[in-house]
Amino acid sequence: MKIGVTKYPGTNNEQDVLRALSELNVKGILVKQYENKPLDDFDALIIAGGFSYGDYLRPGALAAQSPMMEELQHFVDSGRFVIGVCNGFQILCETKILPGVLTTNTSTKFISKWIYLKSENSNSPLLRNTNGKVLRLPIAHFDGRYYDKEKEIELLKSKNQVAFQYCDENGDITLESNPNGSVNNIAGITNSRGNVLGLMPHPERASFEYLGSKDGIQIFENLLEEIKC
């Protein structure tokens, strides 16, 4: 099983992702942008967070122009799995593999805190066993406000592509529980096929009890389960 974990100049989450994978007895392979490794060798790709290329221009915009990302559409079309966390989600939106865009938090502040999430009605195998549950994960971002046109948001909803929404600890999706101003409290989405997941919260930082939550590991377990099938 070969799971690639991307490393761009300025990203800083790849070690956290590798650690979460090793908790599940899988040794992830670091894919450094400058090595130009062909993506075809991998069964799945995790685009780790951070600040690729300093988030210059727009978060994820310059990473989206890299040769690795040019290959990504083909990789996705082949049905293989891709998870983009935080900056990885921003990169997936900038490559247009996922719809919408992540822009500046309404507070104009960097937000680092624990939040609650709920997944509902998603068909993606990456979200198996999470439906209806309230998960506790941390966020750490400046540009996490998910935005798309109303029409597109309706489309996402109708195709069950909304993976996660910010909620309170009871699972109620409220204005107060929306940390960054995302449309419809959206914290993560999938593509229509369900093999690409992008989310702002960090499941890899919620994969160990000693960190305060193990709610995130489920997503990686689902990924490994799918690759084994």
Binding site: A61, Q65, E94, V101, Y147, K149
Partner: peptide, 8 residues
């Protein structure tokens, strides 16, 4: 395609 995101 690069300097702007036409969505916003």
């Amino acid at each position: 395609d690069i300097l702007s995101n036409p969505l916003i």
